[in-house]
Design a protein around this nucleic acid. Structure first.
Lengths: 219, 219
DNA sequence: TTACTTGTGTCATACTTGTGTCATAGACAT
DNA sequence: ATGTCTATGACACAAGTATGACACAAGTAA
């Protein structure tokens, strides 16, 4: 599922976009001003950003400067419909420029085209405040990168892919270590603990006594 | 130098585009009908294709079908300016859609934006302050030419084409050296270090312990 | 020759990871 | 409730391993 950030201060337009993107199966995040958007960008990554130019606080151009180094594709949305505005937006680094008022169908088509091109099937997992990008093997908690070792990372992925399932120690071990579980060592437990500590996840990684562990959604 | 194919049957428009693209430093190839275009595509590769929809012989839509599998970016040019036409073009696989009549400046800006985004298939790669010209195998950092050896160059290209992906040592080695990775030599590491030193890229080329390396965008 | 590229060896260091120990918590029978 | 047994948490540590840094030699082209 692709994740799109919509930065737009006009409620009506924001909702129009949000509803339509959601209906197409995109995961939407919204920000009504530049500051809020900057905060979210600090803490999350997106597959695409729809960016209004005229915003309170920080405007779209400034925000673009900030986004550019991350390589995230951006489509400008703007009431400024002049050719010069379009050229300026594109030259500054936007990937597309849609003038308001626009037809929602065209916006959807342009979003689709851009994501198709960017090929970012950026397979990622999200659980609670933690975001995992599989190809790059990076983990971010509340936007902050957390350094995990190979085993920790693989274990985390295995847990998230089976959230809310009580995983037997045998199964976990065999999946992550790729060899049969002999029991009677503290290996798995130690790694679970390291994960709990690094992610501050005591509340999510629950021990299932005599069985194994379960990554639990909800509180 | 980027190579653009212009497929357009109207001489005036064709020339307008050709002259302006050439002035911007692009290498232009032209075709006035679908058949000619198809022939050229048989024998050459391009960084970008500007494609008129209404053409004699083979029309733009059909041609797009043929181009799509190659992954070359396409901008549709069309006198059909309706929203539905634009949506159709984009849905069929075009990356952008410019309605005629257009302002040449906007076309140039859109060409530039698309090529910027598509780095991967092109003959020119850009990452951070480094610019790579594949055909001439030259590398420039902040405009200054940097001399890289063959292996260093190939390694760099491989990294950039897979930026933000944790590349396994095996994969990197096999891609660049073209033979299976036996492990237990300092070859790959040495070359990574030479790259880091020559480009001053400690902050971009990150070590993924026990996995390999990752070229990381952003800060 | 000379200059250059490239692979490899060595050493030091940093990091990962498995395991042992001990304390504590849970399960269960009495 | 109490006691017992076992499983897990917490922690520290050691061994093994991976990587950075560097130097050098074999190979190659000029």
């Amino acid at each position: 599922m692709q994740k799109v950030l919509i930065v737009e201060d006009d409620d009506a337009i924001l909702n129009l976009i949000r509803v339509n993107l959601a209906a197409e199966g995109y995961l939407c995040a919204c920000a009504a001003d530049g500051k809020t958007a900057a905060d979210r960008l600090e803490n999350e990554t997106f597959d695409l950003i729809l960016l209004d130019i005229m915003l309170p606080e920080i405007n779209g151009y400034e925000l673009l400067e900030y986004i550019r180094p991350t390589g995230t594709p951006v489509i400008f949305l703007s009431a400024k419909s002049g050719v010069d505005d379009r050229i300026r937006g594109l030259k500054l680094g936007a990937d597309d420029y849609i003038a308001k008022p626009f037809q929602i169908g065209e916006l959807l088509a342009r979003v689709e085209a851009l994501l198709r091109r960017c090929g970012r099937h950026s397979r990622r997992l999200i659980f609670a405040d933690v975001e995992i990008d599989l190809p790059s093997r990076t983990v971010r908690k509340a936007g902050q990168e957390v350094e995990l070792t190979v085993k920790e990372f693989d274990l985390l992925v295995e847990l998230i892919q089976n959230k809310n399932v009580a995983l037997y120690r045998e199964r976990l071990y065999e999946k992550v270590w790729g060899e049969p579980y002999m029991g009677d060592t503290r290996t798995l437990d130690s790694h679970i603990q390291r994960l709990r500590r690094k992610l501050d996840w005591d509340r999510y990684i629950r021990t299932v006594f005599r069985i194994g562990y379960r990554l639990e959604e909800g509180k």
